[in-house]
Design a binder for these strands. Structure first.
Lengths: 202, 202
DNA sequence: TGTATAATCTAGACAGTGTAAAGATATAAT
DNA sequence: ATTATATCTTTACACTGTCTAGATTATACA
């Protein structure tokens, strides 16, 4: 797609890819409209043909991040089809892995896109789908007698929040390294998840 | 302190107060070195006499934020002296209240200060003290038979992470408003906290 | 097919930002 | 009292997001 014509052909997606690349390579501080344009090889104001402002580009990059997170959770879940215990623990691990490995995308995904007055339908869609995927897994755990029945959405939000918070604090280095070294992130997540469970998750 | 002399007298603290004020009034997007200097009535590079760079100012504002959070948790805890059940639930509510009411300070406190290569001793001190305060309350809950004994630090981190994550997702509007309207933030927190408890927390 | 219209991209400009350097002014130390 | 140090202002620079005007290409319609 990256031919040498005046018109790029697929600039919108190229800009999103460039943003993801910059986040992974140079970190969140290096992500600017202009750096993304440079990375994609276009002029500094070319992005405005596809994104109304910087927030819109960030929303698009965050949307891509949610797609990756969804795919990772979906894969973890599919890998243990009809084994709810393994599904939920694998998802917790996948969530943590994603946050650690794609740290800056993870951070940008949760840095206020939905708080904006503007609506970003694709972002809303995939983030809702991700929440629904978690709820589905939690629900199947309930059906399997792993979690108490009822209030699936409440349970699901509580579990998501728990995973999210523990992972976030760890990324922020707010969890003392003596604790983190002793237990490791996955063990903390498992311990926390087990509080909800009727049988032991391992 | 704000006399009309060339030397301000207490510029460092004035800048921190100005930063806090801007965060509360105009939000995180309006927080710049120059806006803080303007708010304090000094030239745009005056802050460099007291802060090595913007990160250092943000660290100082975040430190002030942690002092406020600590004070709020301490007050909630002190108000229910030797009533561990009420202490822990009051702390959860206080944590959520702080996050909601001082939203932008809360966000800046958890936006990577400790990830920096530079060390900010006062920030480390108060954030450790806050974690220690939570651990103390959790420990007293263990002594009172509210939480299972042992692994206090693990338990404490899991509970902190849980509160932090649920509150963060709510601030981010990632918790669907149908769920949030139905249960309210405090109820979600209480439900989640109860998973750790041997007796019912209310 | 040819031409008007729209979409896409470039170039230039502007105000705002973080930061560095040089100089002015007040305080502290001797 | 003089020197040294801390504090603050002014100026300057590169970089940012965004706006405008104009160039180039694709699309739609006659």
């Amino acid at each position: 797609m990256t031919n040498d014509t005046y018109h790029h052909g697929d600039l919108k997606n190229a800009l999103i890819r460039a943003g993801v690349e910059i986040l992974a390579r140079d970190g969140i501080g290096a992500l600017s409209l202009r750096s993304v344009a440079r990375e994609a090889g276009v002029s500094h104001s070319a992005p405005y043909a596809h994104f109304s402002d910087k927030q819109a580009l960030i929303a698009a990059i965050s949307t891509e991040g949610f797609h990756r997170l969804y795919a990772k959770l979906e894969a973890a879940s599919a890998h243990f089809k009809s084994q709810p215990i393994k599904q939920i623990t694998a998802c917790a691990r996948a969530y943590a892995d994603f946050a650690v490995q794609e740290r800056d995308i993870f951070n940008i995904m949760f840095s206020g896109v939905l708080e904006q007055e503007k609506a970003y339908p694709e972002f809303v869609e995939i983030s809702k789908a991700t929440a629904a995927l978690l709820a589905k897994i939690v629900s199947s755990c309930q059906d399997a007698g792993i979690f108490p029945t009822g209030k699936t959405d409440l349970l699901s939000v509580a579990i998501w929040g728990q995973m999210h918070g523990i992972v976030s604090l760890a990324l922020e280095k707010q969890i003392s390294h003596t604790v983190l070294d002793q237990y490791k992130l996955n063990e903390i997540l498992l311990f926390a998840l087990n509080q909800f469970a009727l049988v032991e998750l391992t």
